[in-house]
């Protein structure tokens, strides 16, 4: 049975697309048939981060409108087996997403895929609502600052009231907190909220903490999900998060400011 996982946040620019690409790729690397859908209609950039922008012919909205079938629109990843991307349209707006249309596409995808990752647009309007409506699980991406935490809190309320599971009174959407762009140095200086602060306010289980990392930008410049950079701190943190999502119990790392030892300085550890 396929699991639908929405990656959402409320606030913009916190790392949803980076996370969707990393987690989707991570699940596929572990042998699960995975698709990532870009719900950010009008502003597509999942295909850029995945490095498949030149292979886009048809998109999500085309499939909803019956202008293309799913197999024509899905792009198979060239590096990772079991991974496909359903890109968003750049020329349409979010009203092109209808609940029936989204449901039709998801129902068809559920037959083939183990995991369907929905990369939500920012905000709490239609696009974000469509991305979360059919979800079984939610990864709530949060930066360690007050406004992002507040928006995540709001999204959590919506997840528990305005999703199909909520409306049908089924078991609620399973929530995961993913803290991204975490900088232990800045937390120590009191410029950012700590993991503990955020956990206390949101009170949902912590899936992972992704450190602020140069590796993210350079990966996205190369059109490579950062999880493929297994030397980098962010790549490793995302890999941990994927393992936790699959049920492994792994200790959290990258939580405190690195006190670089002599060895790591000599060998240029990141």
């Amino acid at each position: 049975m396929a699991e639908i996982i929405v990656v959402t946040s409320g606030k913009g620019g916190v790392g949803k697309t980076t996370t969707s690409a990393a987690i989707g790729t991570g699940l596929a690397l572990k042998g699960h048939k995975t698709a990532i859908i870009d719900f950010d209609v009008g502003l597509r950039n999942l295909d850029l981060i995945m490095g498949c922008e030149r292979r886009v012919v048809y998109d999500f909205v085309n499939v909803i409108n019956g202008e293309a079938n799913l197999n024509q629109a899905l792009i198979k990843d060239k590096r990772v087996e079991n991974l496909s991307i359903l890109p968003a349209s750049q020329t349409r707006d979010k009203d092109a997403l209808t609940q029936e249309g989204v449901q039709k596409v998801l129902d068809e995808m559920k037959k083939t895929y183990d995991y369907i990752i929905c990369d939500s647009p920012a905000g709490i309007e239609k696009g974000a609502h469509m991305a979360m409506y059919f979800a079984d699980q939610a990864v709530v991406v949060t930066n360690p600052e007050v406004s992002s935490v507040r928006d995540s809190d709001r999204i959590l309320g919506i997840l528990q009231s305005k999703t199909l599971r909520a409306e049908k009174g089924e078991e609620p959407v399973k929530e995961h907190l993913l803290l991204t762009r975490y900088s232990p140095e800045r937390v120590e200086r009191g410029e950012m909220l700590s993991v503990k602060d955020v956990e206390e306010i949101l009170s949902i289980p912590l899936l992972g903490v992704i450190p602020e990392s140069k590796a993210v930008l350079s990966a996205s410049n190369q059109g490579q999900p950062v999880i493929l950079d297994d030397e980098s701190d962010a790549g490793q943190a995302y890999d941990d998060a994927v393992r936790r999502l699959l049920g492994e119990d792994i200790e959290h790392r990258f939580l405190s400011a690195s006190k670089k030892g002599l060895l790591s300085r000599m060998f240029g550890g990141r």
Binding site: R154, L156, G157, Q160
Partner: peptide, 8 residues
């Protein structure tokens, strides 16, 4: 029994 979130 569940958290009451911002906006609710």
């Amino acid at each position: 029994t569940t958290p009451v979130r911002s906006g609710q």
